[in-house]
């Protein structure tokens, strides 16, 4: 699983996880084998409970995972706690700060405000899915070059919002960049450098 997520090398996160042992959902490589329909529909009344649970197929960064979730589990919780994609941060956990931003079917979303059980059949992209092998995505490079991160907590969310913009509009102007990042709060107040990073990539794309 760690190989699925990280690629190679041992990160600080992997090291810590190794100490504690992480329970991780099983990865299913071939999506063709999976039933696109959800396993459960109506919770039966005989159970007398409304504690919904389902087995879902989650497609994250091009790989499919089959796992059991409670209906109340948010996408952010499942990404982090079940799959180990801890690059997705949870700040406010109420759809305000943007630290949990991921890309779903090409658009940016707060993963704290989506239920995992709604994600069947969707393509989810997290910060871990941006790098190609050893090579960082140009937007990640630009954040490093422009000192985009200060404390770094909002950075992956900022980058995912920027990436969602660049996917649809490779050459945005400053107003478009600011608008695209407006749902991501930075408590260090490093907005100008974050915007500069996105503009640097936008310039290269032209």
């Amino acid at each position: 699983m760690d190989n699925e997520v990280k690629g190679k090398g041992v990160s600080r996160r992997d090291f810590l996880k190794g100490l504690g042992g992480g329970a991780i959902g099983s990865a299913v490589i071939s999506t063709g084998l999976l039933d696109p329909n959800k396993a459960e529909a109506y919770p039966t009344e005989s159970t007398g409970t409304s504690r919904g649970k389902s087995t879902i197929n989650l497609k994250v960064n091009g790989k499919s995972y089959r796992l059991e979730v409670e209906h109340r589990d948010t996408l952010a919780e499942v990404l982090r706690d079940q799959l180990g994609f801890t690059g997705t941060k949870v700040g406010c956990n109420r759809g305000e700060c943007g630290a949990c931003t991921v890309i779903i079917n090409g658009r940016s979303f707060y993963s704290c405000s989506q239920l995992a059980v709604w994600m069947e059949g969707k393509e989810i992209l997290t910060i871990e899915g941006l790098e190609k092998g050893d090579k960082l995505d140009p937007i990640q490079e630009a954040f490093i070059e422009n000192d985009g991160p200060q404390c770094g907590f909002c950075t992956s969310g900022q980058i995912m919002s920027a990436k969602a913009l660049l996917l649809r509009n490779p050459g945005p102007n400053e107003a478009e960049v600011r608008n695209a990042l407006s749902g991501n709060l930075c408590r260090c107040g490093n907005y100008n450098r974050e915007v500069a990073a996105v503009l640097a990539v936008a310039g290269k794309g032209r």
Binding site: A41, Y42, P43, S50, G52, H71, R72, L115
Partner: peptide
Amino acid sequence: MKSFANIDV
């Protein structure tokens, strides 16, 4: 969140 059951219609 308290538990609930999600029903896709």
